[in-house]
Computed example of a mutant assay.
Amino acid sequence: MSLRNIQAIVLASLKDMDGVPVWQGFPTAHQDRIDPFLLLHHLQMKVPAYVSPRHAGVPPHPHRGFSPVTFVYKGGVHHRDSRGNNNTVYEGGTQWLNAGMGIIHSERPPADIQEIGGEQEMIQLWVNVPIAHKMDQPSYFSLDADATPTVKTEDGLATIRVVSGDILGTKGAIPTVTPVNTAMISAKAGAKLAWDFPRDHQAFLYILDGALKFTSGEEVGPWNTVVFKQDGEGIQFEVSRDASLFFASGLPIHEKVVAHGPYVMHTETAILEAMRDFQVGKMGILIEE
């Protein structure tokens, strides 16, 4: 397996999302989108005990034209949407929403968030879909930690939860519109990890916590996105401090992207149509109980 070289190491920028601080891995001033991946947010917060979970998190909002995906590292998320889905996913789980032609959803802390420690840590990844699928019917997939296919290294120092695609011969449980590999990784110091994936994929590794050392000598700490060149079939690194990681690779779509807020389409006209369709109720209605 020929190893990929590092193209960039990008420190996330801290953003205010309606009063909620999040680390934005990309895009930033120094890193554009990584086709087919549009955006990465890393949320770390403590839900105040005096705030009801019903009023915390993200209230109902629309999406069209891509897949917003949430990977839960701590706490949980209660998802409800205008297609009738109502589900809670906890630590180690994933919720994968294909917004398609349009859907309204909310993402709140679970009702028992204080009983499980009150902490929230999640990655939200926006995955683009081809123009031909932007107006598909919406779909929702949830995956609990126990149902997530998992690989453990022989030394027992690392665990890789494969959500989608194929990593180390283990296939993820969530289907994707285009080829996309995603994994949540926890590893102890001293773990040595390596895996391959298609040469035509774009790939990155985001470090939530801990530190890694690559064969080229770079040592990388938290809140950094390591973007790889398309010059090999795999990656390899050693964990120098206990780490929580997120990995993704995907086949580039190579199509025009026009994004505005919660909509990702291919023309300005399509964005205006999305805004109009939301206003007139074509994306449905979500009334939270």
Results as ranks from 00 to 15, higher is better:
Asn181Phe: 15
Gly75Met: 07
Ile185Leu: 12
Lys134Asn: 08
Thr94Asp: 09
Glu107Asp: 09
Phe37Cys: 04
Val72Tyr: 10
Pro198Asp: 05
Leu168His: 06
Tyr73Ala: 04
Ala187Met: 05
Pro62Val: 01
Ile34Leu: 12
Asp209Asn: 12
Val77Ala: 13
Met283Trp: 02
Ser249Asp: 14
Ala132Arg: 12
Lys15Tyr: 09
Ser52His: 01
Glu107Ser: 09
Glu219Cys: 06
Gly102Arg: 00
Lys46Ser: 13
Asp146Leu: 12
Ala203Tyr: 11
Thr269Phe: 03
Met275Arg: 03
Gly172Glu: 09
Ile253Met: 10
Asp196Pro: 10
Gln31Cys: 15
Ile271Leu: 11
Tyr73Glu: 03
Arg4Cys: 12
His133Asn: 12
Ser186Phe: 04
Met184Cys: 06
Ser186Ala: 05
Ile6Phe: 08
Trp23Ser: 09
Ile285Ser: 14
Phe204Gly: 02
Arg276Ser: 02
Thr178Met: 13
Ile235Glu: 01
Asp35Lys: 11
Gly250Leu: 09
Pro109Gly: 05
Asp209Met: 11
Gly284Phe: 06
Ala49Asn: 01
Leu212Phe: 00
Leu205Ser: 10
Asp200Gly: 05
Ser244Ile: 00
Asp35Phe: 10
His63Asp: 08
Asp200Gln: 13
Pro138Gln: 03
Val162Trp: 14
Asp166Glu: 13
Ala203Gly: 07
Pro262Trp: 13
Leu38Ser: 05
His254Val: 02
His79Tyr: 14
Leu97Met: 11
Asn87Lys: 10
Asp16Thr: 08
Asn98Thr: 04
Asp231Ile: 06
Ala187Phe: 10
Phe66Cys: 04
Pro21Lys: 15
Val162Pro: 02
Ala194Val: 04
Ala187Tyr: 12
Ile185Lys: 04
His41Ile: 01
Ala145Lys: 10
Ser139Trp: 03
Leu97Ser: 03
Leu212Trp: 01
Val20Ile: 15
Val257Gln: 03
His260Val: 02
Leu286Lys: 02
Leu43Asp: 08
Ile113His: 11
Gly118Phe: 15
Phe246Arg: 07
Pro138Ser: 03
Leu43Met: 15
Val22Pro: 02
Val257Leu: 06
Ala29Arg: 10
Gly284Asp: 02
Leu125Gln: 00
Ile253Cys: 09
Trp223Asn: 12
Met275Val: 11
Gly65Glu: 01
Ala99Asn: 02
Ser164Arg: 00
Ile253Thr: 04
Val22Gly: 04
Ala173Gly: 00
Met265Trp: 02
Asp277Arg: 10
His201Asp: 14
Arg161Glu: 08
